[in-house]
Amino acid sequence: MRLILVLFTILLIVPIGLAQANQMGSRIAFLQHKWLSGMDQPIKSEGYLSIYPSDIIYWQVTFPFETEMLISETNIIQFVAKEKSMEVPISQLPFLQSIRSLLLTLDSQDIKEEISKTYQVELLENEAGWIFALPTQKLKNTPFDLIRFNGQKNMLSSVYMKRKTGDREEIQFGEIELLPLSEMPSLPEPN
């Protein structure tokens, strides 16, 4: 009887474990330079971008100080020193929905195809890599004049954004790490 119970428990636990093991997330290191109008030197920051199977994007800055950001389907929440400092509905930043969709394709098998399919545009490609400019005129209330993506093969290597105010920023991405959920960074609590 006990043997049956043990076997039954194993049969129950193994598929759950396997299912959990199949849940993978992605983690990408980034380096950001921001040029603000009126300043000679850019503000430099670095950290990790993590994408969870639940389509949550976790933007974690480790330098010059720790700050974190969660981007969900509905909200963007910023944390400074582990404390929530700002929460804004995505609806107030309509352009962010497009950028979020694009970031979510970062861990796809073929990012080029995903981008072509999503935005129905051809990527410019040569031996050095590929380049794709997000059609900002199609985005609602965007503060950007230009959003450009650079990549090599199936990897996104950098994003360049120029704002209407004249501020500019470039984010360079490292290699994508596919990690099981248990090894992904724990998300900060929104409340």
Binding site: K34, V61, V159
Partner: peptide, 11 residues
């Protein structure tokens, strides 16, 4: 510092 965090936020 919170302002600076906002400023380096790409979004």
């Amino acid at each position: 510092q919170q302002t600076m965090a906002q400023l380096i936020n790409p979004f």
